[in-house]
Design a protein around this nucleic acid. Structure first.
Lengths: 236, 236
DNA sequence: CGACAGGTGCTTGTATACAAGCACTGCACG
DNA sequence: CGTGCAGTGCTTGTATACAAGCACCTGTCG
């Protein structure tokens, strides 16, 4: 999908910053100074700046010209959009499943599920497996590359999920739902697979309002607020 | 979806270049020199370069470090991916139509359809109306912002469409299909709407192989080729 | 004649310098 | 005391300089 991308510092910085935003290591609303990032990463402003521009296009960062750059707050509207997008795509992918799915992918998914149920699984490990599981399902229908687009668009959704699991650590429930989907797929029961997928995808989504009540400052408000500087730069 | 983007030259250059790529004014395979573009646009390399980086993330441009930047060839695989994506999303949007659709959008769509059937309609005018029509349909279901994601991902599909219509000028067929979809939607006939939408979306897609036989040099080959310089820089 | 090595001119990647703008600080003044 | 206005220090936007690398061209040497 993407071009070769020989190792440039821009590429690695972009990936690192993106990871830090998605894992909430850089929390929503955090100020990002090009100069500071450049100094801490040991490079000049240029690759840092170009990375921020890419993150801004992903919707994960907001750049206010001549004011500052900030990790974008979790926007409930964008979360809902991502939810709609992934549900549409993943359900359509199930509809397009071939009668003879790729056996190597099946094996990979089975192995993935086993790891998901390993006791003492870390949160970030679970998210990695979760990501690979859903992408694997789409590869089964031959649309694995579409996952790239979905993954790029669901940054706000991912952050909301992490917020939810941070205070309610129970990935086991989702692991069970994954297995349910998988069993229906290999069993050829398309209707059950669709139902299980829909249930699974909406489980997280319905949790957002509760999280929002807990930590409203991480979410965007309806009115498009503008950052202000209060001695140090904050976005309130 | 995106932030305000106070007019920066980067923003306008990005939009202009994107438009030129999508309309085939910059044909697939064309070499893009940062220096040349900067000179012709009367700015420095910086905003041009940043625009190219954004276009590269859109998949419309490929940047080969230390070699050159090129308008990406139409990749049949990416066209198929975009087709799958938009079909999944637009059909799901139809499923989510409210029983009481926004009347102002309905009026807007009706007006749009009238213009589509105006005789002597230019190709680019038709594409603009087409884009607005499909976005309008998604706004009816409250998912208008998702169209932004779809639109960003379907660059290769759009270029393939233009290639098809350039040699087979008959947007009238598509205009009729649009009306068919619209009538089913306002009539509340969901099944017919779905069928008409699916038929419509696949009409263009099925035309691609024919175009590819006509102009293979505009399409990407399976092997990931690398550009070479032959006196002047070309990508063959 | 052929092959190889270095020059040349382009490319993008990175670093740095300067420009434009916003917001707070603090002093001057009514 | 309140108000206004310049100063200051930060921000990102743009321009420019330099670094690294690839490919062709050409002269030289075997």
């Amino acid at each position: 999908m993407a071009q070769t991308n020989r190792r440039t510092s821009r590429r690695s910085i972009y990936l690192k910053l993106r990871q830090m935003v998605l894992t909430l290591e850089l929390p929503p609303g955090a100020a990002l100074s090009e100069n500071e990032l450049a100094a801490s990463l040991g490079v000049s402003r240029t690759p840092v700046r170009e990375s921020l521009i890419l993150l801004a296009q992903d919707g994960l960062v907001q750049i206010f010209p001549k004011i500052g750059s900030f990790v974008s707050r979790v926007d409930p509207a964008q979360v809902a959009d991502a939810q709609f997008l992934r549900e549409a795509v993943e359900l359509a992918s199930l509809d397009a499943l071939p009668s003879d799915p790729d056996h190597s992918v099946i094996t990979e998914l089975r192995d993935n599920l086993a790891r998901q149920q390993r006791p003492g699984l870390g949160l970030e490990e679970f998210f990695e497996l979760d990501e690979a599981f859903h992408q694997g399902l789409m590869r089964l229908s031959g649309h694995g590359n579409v996952w790239t687009t979905v993954a790029a668009a669901k940054g706000h959704l991912d952050r909301a999920r992490r917020l939810g699991l941070h205070e309610n650590v129970s990935p086991a429930v989702f692991a069970d739902q994954h297995r349910e989907i998988f069993d229906a797929v290999v069993g050829g029961d398309l209707a059950s697979a669709r139902t299980a997928m829909r249930t699974h995808l909406r489980a997280v989504f319905s949790d957002i309002e509760r999280i929002r009540a807990h930590s409203p400052e991480l979410f965007a408000t309806g009115s498009s607020s503008v950052p202000v500087r209060r001695n140090v730069v904050v976005w309130e």
